[in-house]
């Protein structure tokens, strides 16, 4: 290992900072998605989406977001491979210590989120980029309102969507407080508060996203 190799703690901090960026991204994305619930035939949602598409700040942030995803995923996988290699012979009795079980499954929950992310890109983002043809419910390549409703009316798609957000909730619940520990913030008073905020954040995000398919599946005429 040369001096150029990225040290363990650097990798963790980079993963964490990229993750923090993703955490803020999710809030913005949820905000836009929730406008789908406004009962005006998708007018508010189209305006919000239009704003996201044309706003110069968002245009600059978009490649950063992609970079954050790629960096987070690649370094996350590298960390996991190194962690597997660090214990080539497994215990016959698995560890019974009190532990944060969620932290053991960051890779697994991450992979599920990644698979969902790919499905999501195919159904929405790649169409916008012009890589894929708009589906026949879409009036143009920006009409994601009708596209989303068509997908959410499909119980199979909605179930996949909901399952993905359960995994994301588990990922985020550990991730939020883990980020603070990684950058060196551990405090007898604030750390318990951060953990509570992380749990609330992960629930708000996952329940927030989940409301939308549930609405369109069961309550939409």
């Amino acid at each position: 290992m040369s001096n150029l190799a990225i040290r363990s703690i650097s990798k963790k901090i980079i993963t964490g900072l990229a993750g923090l960026f993703l955490i803020t991204f999710l809030v913005v994305h949820l905000g836009v998605n929730l406008t789908m619930l406004v009962p005006d035939g998708g007018e508010t949602f189209r305006e919000a989406a239009e704003f996201m598409r044309t706003n110069p700040v968002i245009k600059i942030v978009e490649p950063v977001l992609f970079a954050a995803f790629i960096i987070h995923i690649i370094i996350g996988i590298v960390l996991k491979i190194q962690n597997w290699m660090a214990r080539p012979n497994r215990y016959s009795v698995s560890n019974k210590a009190y532990t944060y079980w969620m932290s053991k499954y960051m890779f697994h929950t991450g992979i599920v989120v990644l698979i969902f992310l790919i499905i999501h890109l195919i159904n929405f983002y790649f169409i916008r980029l012009g890589l894929l043809e708009p589906s026949n419910v879409m009036s143009d390549e920006h009409d994601f309102y009708n596209q989303a409703i068509m997908l959410f009316r499909d119980p199979l798609y909605s179930v996949i969507y909901l399952v993905a957000f359960v995994f994301l909730a588990v990922h985020l619940n550990h991730a939020f407080q883990s980020f603070f520990q990684t950058i060196g913030a551990n405090h007898s008073k604030y750390t318990p508060v951060i953990k509570v905020i992380g749990t609330i954040y992960s629930l708000v995000i996952s329940i927030g996203f989940a409301i939308i398919p549930i609405y369109f599946l069961f309550f939409y005429e």
Binding site: K11, L79, Q82, N83, N95, T99, S103, M106
Partner: peptide, 8 residues
């Protein structure tokens, strides 16, 4: 290995 903030 690298710490995953598991705390065991």
């Amino acid at each position: 290995g690298n710490c995953s903030n598991n705390y065991s």
